[in-house]
Every structure is written in structure tokens, then in C-alpha cells.
């Protein structure tokens, strides 16, 4: 068998590699029992490390307040997840569903708008020659290195000048600017959208803007999904901006809301269970979205990092 390795076409070998089957032949026996066991042991130990906190959160959210501290924290006792969810959703006049909705608006809609804007700008920087192009790109690149949190206070000062703090827009508008998205879209558009295709579209009488939205967007799709996910996470994780901007509880994203509850745990003990159930409710949809979009996430990230 060992002599046939060289005859296997590269594509078959690549497939074997990605599907997890080891290529047969010469490189087979070299990985002995010991390295394989050691590798699996490392992966196993870290699986426990990564999943235990999430498992614990899931179990804790199913318990009654009494069971939370008295029963085994890593296994179920009386399951009452439904009651807990109902209780947490109606606590404080149903403010948690409101927070979840706010988060979807800030992060979901915000990231969507940011992706469209960054995609258009990156595309123009890649596909057209115009005066000031390099200047725009370099300023944007500088923006990549200035993180969103560093801008929270300056934005707060600016919004106070126009008395617009503590509004939905004070968190939403700054969130739709993604310099990293422009960078990624430019790199991806440069290689993924062939010039000939644009010429063909022009000959067919399609306008530039229409060509972008009908043809180029499809070719840039993996990169755009990556930009979306990246910006979504950035907005979702940006704690400083809502913390400094918002006073009105009904405008909070879920992260800030749960944080506020957590600061009151000592005065209002039942909040402890609500914080945990609320945390579970806020991460489950995210985990599902992430797993569904993971394929795009990977290809897009790879292309961004390799350049």
C-alpha cells in the first residue's frame, strides 16, 4: 500500500485530510499509539474546560431557587426551566424580552447595515481608481487599530453636545461603522470579483450600482457574512458604549440589563436565578446562529488573514 501514496490524486488526499480520514500508506504508521492518545487526551481535557461553564448554566437555569444552592450543580434535580423562563420574562414588567429585542436591533440590524455600507465602500476601493483612494483606505486602516471601546467616551461627549445621549440612536449609529469590514471587503472584492465580469455587465448596459447589488454581492458573499458576524459580535460585546450612554432601562441591550440585575443580587436574592436564566436565554440563539453560519465564518476569515 505504501507505494501507492504518490499515485493518489492530490484532490483525494485533500479530501481525506479535511474529512478526518488519515491518508493511507507511508504517513500511516508514523503516528504511533502514544502521540494519538496524547492528542486526544489534550482535546478531551479542553472540551471539558470549554463546555463545563455552559453546561452548568444550562443546569442552573432549570432549578428552583432552593435547589440552586443545595443540589449537585452539575446535574439536574427538579426540572422547571419553563417556570423559570416565565418568571424571568415577566419580572420587572417584562423588561427582559425588551432587552433581548433591543440587542437584536442594536447588534442584528446594526451589523446588517454596517455590512452593506462596508461592502459598498470596500468594493469601490478595490474596483475603481479615483483620486484620494489610498488616503481613504489608509485612514480606514488606522480606524481598524482604534477599537470601538476607545471611542465610547469621545462619542458620549459628542452626543451630550447635541443632547442625544440616552437615546436608541446614540448606541445604534456608532455601531454601523465597521472599518475592519471595509478592509476585509476590499481584499476580498479585489480577488473574488473579476474585471471581465464587470466589463461584460457594462456592455449589457447594467449600471455600476445595479451590477454591484446583483452580481458582485453574490461573489463577495462569504466575506460579507464574515463582516456581518464580526460586527455583530463587536456590537454585542461592546459594553462601554451602552454603559456610558444609556440611563433609561428600556433602552438597554441584554448585556447591560443583566449586568444591572447582577449588581442588585445582594438586595434582591431571587435575581440570582433570573440572571442565570436570562444569560442562558441570551446566548442560546447566538450559539445556534454561530453554528449555522460557521461554514462562511471559516472561509471568510481564512481569506482575510492570509492576505
Amino acid at each position: 500500500m505504501s507505494t501507492t501514496t504518490a499515485a493518489v490524486p492530490p484532490s483525494a488526499r485533500a479530501r481525506a485530510r479535511t474529512t478526518g480520514r488519515k491518508g493511507n500508506g507511508r504517513n500511516g504508521p508514523r503516528e504511533g499509539f502514544l502521540p494519538r492518545t496524547a492528542a486526544m487526551l489534550v482535546m478531551g481535557v479542553f472540551t471539558v474546560y470549554f463546555l463545563t461553564p455552559i453546561w452548568w448554566l444550562l443546569v442552573a437555569s432549570t432549578k428552583s431557587r432552593g435547589d440552586l444552592t443545595t443540589t449537585n450543580a452539575l446535574w439536574f434535580s427538579d426540572i422547571q426551566l419553563g417556570e423559570n423562563i416565565a418568571a424571568v420574562a415577566s419580572y420587572g414588567g417584562g423588561v427582559l424580552p425588551r432587552w433581548l429585542l433591543n440587542s437584536v436591533l442594536y447588534a442584528g440590524v446594526g451589523a446588517l447595515v454596517a455590512t452593506v455600507l462596508a461592502g459598498m465602500c470596500g468594493y469601490a476601493l478595490a474596483k475603481y481608481v479615483f483620486p484620494g483612494r489610498e488616503l481613504v483606505f489608509n485612514v480606514v486602516l488606522g480606524g481598524v487599530l482604534v477599537p470601538a471601546t476607545a471611542l465610547a467616551l469621545p462619542l458620549f461627549l459628542l452626543f451630550s453636545q447635541v443632547s442625544a445621549t440616552n437615546t436608541f440612536w446614540s448606541v445604534f449609529l456608532p455601531s454601523i461603522v465597521s472599518p475592519f469590514g471595509v478592509y476585509l471587503a476590499r481584499i476580498f472584492a479585489a480577488s473574488a470579483v473579476p474585471e471581465e465580469l464587470l466589463e461584460a455587465a457594462r456592455l449589457d448596459g447594467s449600471g455600476e450600482v445595479r451590477t454591484f447589488f446583483t452580481v458582485s454581492v453574490r461573489l463577495m458573499f462569504p466575506a460579507l457574512v464574515t463582516v456581518f458576524l464580526f460586527q455583530f459580535v463587536a456590537i454585542w460585546n461592546n459594553f462601554f458604549l451602552p454603559l456610558i450612554m444609556l440611563r433609561d432601562e428600556s433602552l438597554f441591550p441584554v448585556t447591560l440589563g443583566l449586568y444591572t440585575w447582577n449588581t442588585q443580587v445582594n438586595q434582591v436574592p431571587e435575581l440570582r436565578l433570573y440572571v442565570l436564566t436570562g444569560a442562558l436565554l441570551s446566548i442560546v440563539p447566538l450559539i445556534i446562529v454561530f453554528l449555522l453560519l460557521q461554514r462562511f465564518w471559516r472561509t471568510g476569515l481564512g481569506s482575510g488573514a492570509l492576505k
Binding site: T47, L51, L57, F239, T255, Q294
Partner: peptide, 21 residues
């Protein structure tokens, strides 16, 4: 998937979870 899952947990919520742990 298992190693990537924690990335879905926002920093604030991860800190609350570990604070309890």
C-alpha cells in the same frame, strides 16, 4: 464546535458566569 462555542457568550455574561463559578 465545542471549542468555538464560548465565543458566542458576550464578555459581560461570561464574566457573570465565571463570577459565580
Amino acid at each position: 464546535l465545542a471549542f468555538f462555542a464560548p465565543y458566542a457568550v458576550p464578555g459581560v455574561i461570561a464574566a457573570i458566569m465565571w463570577g459565580f463559578l
